[in-house]
Simulated assay, not measured.
Amino acid sequence: MRVSFTKMHGLGNDFVVLDARAQDLPALDKARAAAIADRNTGIGCDQLIVLEPSDTADFRMRIYNHDGGEVGACGNATRAVALLHGSEARIETSGGLLVASPTAGGASVDMGEPRFDWDAIPLEYPMDTFSMPVSWEMLADPGAVNVGNPHVIFFVEDTDAVPLDRLGPEIENDSLFPERVNVNVATVENRGRIRLRVWERGAGLTRACGTGACATAVHAIRRKLVDSPVTVALPGGELEIAWQPGGSIRMTGPATESFRGSFEWDDFA
């Protein structure tokens, strides 16, 4: 069976998009998703995205990380599929309903309201998510936010000085986070700008993470370190994040279609 795909990226965070509305796809399991995402023997991507029909929205988006695990949200992918859709879209995800509108060169997305309760992150046991009394070497007193998937955020003097390639997987898989966690290390440069690096659960270091930018901006606003809207600068580029307490998060940034192609489904069994 030959399957068509679209390769896209948002700030270098790249996706293979499969449209199950336009073609019937067999069931996708973790092993096949990981095989497609493999950069050496597959097509290669940070996340595999599958678009499906929805009874409650314009379409449903399913998200599989590089390791094949399915997750609830991906901000960069949401901008990418909004660009692919070509008009405002209500998008069903397992992390909640998202609303995205194409803009010049990208999209603006209503990411919904953040959640802060310890069991919504989730954490293994009750804890104040505003300032968590935990640490991993130089990373201490983080906050935690769920924006469709779980994030822990550390503010540091220099994000580039943190060995995130080593500490990221340790924190991601700590027993404190029963569903694992995305790890954000941020430096507040001024009241309008944050520098950010992210270790994504199941994907590792990526050039950009839209939900990470949202979670980090929200936590910085809660701590009164920045004002809304705030620019979040990631290795792949910049996103604008706007949020007021009690409201939804608005993320705006670029997205790009790289190329289109097709593959034999059974090649990645």
Rank of each mutant, 00 (worst) to 15 (best):
V147K: 02
F154P: 07
L205N: 02
A213D: 00
N190V: 11
V198I: 08
C214F: 08
V188D: 11
C209Q: 00
P169I: 11
N173S: 15
A208G: 01
R191Q: 15
E179N: 15
E172D: 15
R201F: 03
F155A: 03
T206I: 01
N190F: 13
D158W: 05
F154T: 06
D158M: 04
R207Y: 05
D158T: 03
D160Y: 08
E170F: 12
V181G: 04
T159F: 12
E200G: 01
A213C: 04
P169L: 07
D158R: 03
S175P: 13
P169G: 12
G202F: 01
L176P: 06
A213G: 00
I153W: 05
T206W: 02
E189D: 13
E179A: 15
E189V: 15
A203D: 02
V198P: 04
V162G: 03
A213H: 02
L176D: 13
L176S: 08
A186V: 08
P163T: 10
E179W: 12
N190W: 13
P150C: 10
E170C: 09
F154A: 07
V198T: 14
L205V: 02
W199P: 05
E200F: 03
G202N: 01
I171K: 04
L176K: 02
V162T: 06
T159V: 10
L167T: 14
V162P: 07
E172L: 09
V188R: 09
W199D: 03
D158C: 05
V181I: 15
D165P: 03
G212W: 01
T211I: 07
E189C: 12
G210W: 05
F154W: 06
G210V: 06
D165I: 11
R201D: 04
F155V: 03
E189A: 15
G148R: 07
G202T: 03
L196D: 03
I153D: 06
V188P: 07
L167M: 12
R193E: 15
E200T: 02
V181K: 01
V198E: 00
H151Y: 09
D174R: 07
I153S: 08
T187Q: 13
L176I: 13
R166N: 13
E170R: 14
E172N: 12
F154M: 04
A161W: 05
T187I: 10
D160P: 10
F154I: 05
N173M: 15
P169M: 09
V152R: 02
D160N: 13
V185T: 10
R191S: 14
E200H: 01
A215K: 01
R166D: 14
A186T: 07
R166L: 15
R197Q: 06
T211L: 04
P163V: 09
T206S: 03
T187L: 09
P163R: 06
A208E: 00
G192A: 13
P150N: 10
R197P: 08
E170G: 10
R207G: 04
N182F: 10
L164I: 04
A208K: 00
D158N: 14
T211P: 04
F154S: 05
T206L: 00
D160T: 14
G204V: 01
D165Y: 04
R201L: 06
E157M: 08
A208M: 00
L164W: 00
A203W: 00
V162K: 01
E179H: 14
G210I: 02
E172I: 10
D158F: 05
V183E: 08
W199A: 01
L176N: 10
G212N: 00
F155Q: 02
R197K: 10
A186N: 10
H151F: 08
V198A: 01
A215Q: 01
V152P: 02
G202Q: 04
